[in-house]
Nucleic acid binder design. Structure first.
Lengths: 146, 146
DNA sequence: TTAAAAAAGCAACATAGTTGCAAATGAAAA
DNA sequence: TTTTCATTTGCAACTATGTTGCTTTTTTAA
């Protein structure tokens, strides 16, 4: 029943957009599809490549920015210069991403995963520093590549 | 005795370059100065601005790349798209950065600090994943801004 | 001092990201 | 359904960022 499944995904996407007061447009649907169709995170470049034939570069930038603002996706820090985005699991309040999971980058398949079950550790800071948010990115080999 | 101090810094820089089999050039000295003159990390843009009047853009890129390759500086992951660099405290073997400190980004002064005394925590990963390197970036308010 | 090697500068190019505005599309009401 | 209004898209032009090949300059070491 692939038809049923795709209807479900359509509903999911429509609901997600509605809940965030966003109008339902082709580009938004397409980009959300990309995220929902796979586990890992997506680099901006990937998204542009896979949505870029149908949509303008500028639209991709603006759509991603909108999703980040609304808390639908979040960015993942990297040491190279490629921004990566992943779906927020729980809905994050507009602009406030309070996911506390860690990220894993496999340097074999080069995928980035949100490890939703691994909670960021408490970090003990030197005197005077106060923490607001902790990002952890682990790299190594993922379970599919070993 | 500012003269004495500046002589010391010159010696330090020269030694650092020699130890890494790098010839001593104006641009390398200038850029190392920038790092030694301050605590935090430097964004590529800052370095280019502060060294760019004397040196070509390309030279700045190549110099930073050389320093990373030699293990003199390391990159710090960020969620926005700005690469940040900081001096490696202990000499890292060529290309192998085995610093295990965490990074702190103050969102008031927007500086990035290496907290050399705070060691990255052990992260327990799900079955099948193997970790090679752990990056921790904390953001909040630094001790100078509170 | 000089010759070989390394680095810097320049130009040209490639990619990434931004802005303003006109045309197209979506939402909601008549 | 059709119309209206707000939102979103596409386009064009622009700025910023990063790269490459080649020539000239500087550094090193003999």
């Amino acid at each position: 029943m692939p038809k049923q499944a795709s209807v479900n995904i359509e509903n999911k996407i429509a609901g997600l957009l509605k809940r965030n007061n966003l109008s339902i447009t082709d580009s938004r649907k397409k980009i959300l599809h990309l995220f929902l169709e796979q586990t890992g995170a997506l680099a901006h470049g990937d998204i542009e490549k896979r949505a870029g034939e149908k949509f303008d570069r500028v639209t991709v930038y603006r759509t991603l920015q909108t999703f980040v603002d609304k808390g639908i996706i979040h960015t993942i820090p990297t040491a190279d210069n490629s921004i990566r985005y992943a779906l927020c699991k729980d809905e994050c309040a507009g602009g406030h991403h309070h996911d506390h999971h860690i990220h894993f980058v496999c340097h074999k398949c080069n995928n980035t995963y949100c490890l939703d079950d691994v909670v960021t550790p408490e970090i003990k800071l030197p005197k005077g520093y106060s923490a607001e948010h902790v990002e952890v990115v682990v790299d190594g080999i993922c379970k599919n590549c070993r």
